[in-house]
């Protein structure tokens, strides 16, 4: 399954829903549902991050790190399953690296 972040917002912003309509907390809810579906069907969820204005660390940490912090998934489920459940597609490697670090830190 592929999900394009632009379908959520071209200008995602903030950590909590109180920060605005397109926050990390709001995106995490969508992510969690799609990950659950993908997990049940043993297929990866590919998140496309490009063609948005920019992604702040608060947004990314709450969206992706929050998946583990809130006990929705473990880092093993997200990153170490075969096929890898969560895959990030972006021309900017630093986003993929950042996201993975938040997931790993959230479980440590």
């Amino acid at each position: 399954m592929i999900y394009d972040l632009r379908d959520f917002s071209k200008a995602p912003f903030g950590r909590y829903k109180s920060d605005g309509e397109f926050s990390g907390e709001a995106f995490r809810e969508i992510l969690a549902n799609k990950l659950k579906y993908s997990q049940e069907h043993n297929e990866p969820l590919i998140i496309k991050l490009d063609n948005v204005y920019g992604l702040g660390s608060s947004f990314l940490e709450e969206s992706f790190g929050g998946l583990v912090r809130k006990g929705l998934f473990t880092k093993e489920e997200l990153l170490e399953s075969s096929p890898r459940l969560l895959q990030i597609e972006t021309e900017f490697d630093f986003y993929a690296i950042e996201i993975e670090s938040y997931i790993r830190e959230a479980q440590s």
Binding site: F13, D19, G54, G56, F94
Partner: peptide, 18 residues
Amino acid sequence: FSNTKSQIFVKGMQEAIL
């Protein structure tokens, strides 16, 4: 905005507002 510097600029801007 399909440019590394722009992306990092917007990242920083977002965090400053937050």
